[in-house]
């Protein structure tokens, strides 16, 4: 594609395209840079300057405070472990289910799809779910953060669509060769689905990382708290102006600088996954070469 003749119209298109995208990228990145800058600023500076990208008087005080207790580091480690294990479990379970559902010959496929769709729209709610998790003995276990969300119906349906787009001939060819279904899945379909696996692993990882309700409801032991519990604790300050009834006067809203620093620490690690996954999006797959 790169070596071919580039028309004048193409050049104009390219330029406009680049400018629009760069403009959008600037809009999205500036506020985050502000959050980053504010995390190094003093309280007074945050209160007195409306928007800045570089603190006048940089300080490491908030970060020093955050890392002065081992609670924060522990929760960071917990979150990383749960995210890694959880993503592996969840993407595996989802792929395993999506693959057979993409097979046009599967008996009961329509029924299962309808049941999945129904489960996507309707839910029993917080309390019955809590009782199920409790009944399984998962309270205060890290599995409670993983298993209840193991298969996201939305992800499942989209992954199935991707599998369906893979040429059916591949599967049939393998079948004729006498290959085991699982072998076909493992050897042929999965390697072709790398962009999909990368995408949905990212979706699952981010969902686990950002999950707040599961640890809130299922984890009582505060030494097992994940990062999001602290993030919420620090960033969602209770607003006296909208409190129905009076706010507890003992409540002191957390310092602004601390909010920003916690946001930075809690988002940077997960944000860094994406660039690593990008190589899977960079180039299209060579379906022809697989088939040979």
């Amino acid at each position: 594609m790169s070596s071919r003749f580039v028309s004048r119209q193409d050049k104009v298109f390219d330029l406009v395209n680049i400018l629009v995208l760069l403009g959008f990228a600037t809009l999205t990145i500036l506020p985050f840079l502000y959050v980053l800058a504010a995390s190094f600023a003093t309280e007074v500076e945050i209160a007195s300057r409306p928007f800045f990208l570089w603190p006048n008087d940089p300080t490491l005080e908030t970060y020093r405070y955050i890392f002065s207790t081992d609670t924060f580091i522990r929760s960071l480690l917990v979150t990383i472990c749960v995210t890694v294990v959880g993503t592996a479990v969840q993407i595996t379970m989802t792929l395993l289910m999506a693959y057979p559902l993409a097979d046009p010959n599967l008996v009961g496929r329509g029924l299962i799809m309808r049941l999945i769709l129904f489960a996507m729209l309707f839910s029993g709610g917080m309390i019955p779910m809590f009782l199920v998790v409790k009944g399984l003995g998962l309270l205060d276990s890290y599995w409670a953060l993983i298993l209840p969300l193991a298969i996201n119906p939305f992800n499942l349906i989209v992954i199935r669509t991707f599998f369906q787009q893979l040429p059916g001939e591949l599967r049939e060819a393998a079948e004729i060769d006498g290959a085991h279904e699982f072998t076909t899945f493992w050897r042929i379909m999965l390697p072709l689905s790398k962009p999909v696996i990368a995408t949905f692993s990212l979706f699952y990882a981010v969902a686990i990382w950002n999950d707040f309700m599961s640890p809130l409801l299922y984890i009582s032991d505060s030494s097992k708290w994940t990062l999001q519990m602290f993030v919420r604790q620090v960033t969602i300050s209770t607003d006296p102006s909208t409190t129905i009834g009076n706010l507890d006067p003992n409540y002191i809203p957390p310092a602004e600088g601390l909010k920003f620093a916690v946001i930075v620490i809690a988002t940077l690690p997960i944000m860094c996954i994406y660039p690593f996954l990008q190589k899977h999006f960079a180039k299209g797959v060579m379906i022809g070469s697989v088939k040979g």
Partner: peptide, 9 residues
């Protein structure tokens, strides 16, 4: 919990 971190048991 109103403070930033929960007390260690």
């Amino acid at each position: 919990l109103l403070s930033e971190t929960a007390p260690d048991p």
